[in-house]
Amino acid sequence: MTVGVNHYLAVSALLFGLGLYGILTRRNAVAILMGIELMLNATNINLVAFNRYVAPGALAGHVFALVIITLAACEAAVGLALVMAVYRNLETVHVDEINVLKW
């Protein structure tokens, strides 16, 4: 039995589900960002696997995976800067306690 595209898709779906669980259940904003990183990784596995098995002659999957990695770095930098700013003003990083916009 050889490794096919379905194996990679299964791993990617499981990783995506784990990341979603982290996003839905964590209170700490940094932990939510970690869940987002896991989901972005799952997306990259999908892109590269499809590049390998569906269009082996093209390199679009690699290129888009690299662009997503770049944007994930941007997102992590801005998101963590926001967490630091919120922590300095409200002295908490728990998203269920950040409710100053709620009436």
Binding site: G4, N6, L9, F16, G17, Y53, V54, P56, G57, L59
Partner: peptide
């Protein structure tokens, strides 16, 4: 999360992808 994972698995594994032979 479990429901979305199950839906993704069912969707991804049941689809017949237009696989192409060859290597990079």
């Amino acid at each position: 999360a479990a429901a979305l994972t199950a839906a993704l698995l069912a969707l991804l594994l049941r689809t017949a992808w237009p696989l192409a032979a060859g290597s990079l």
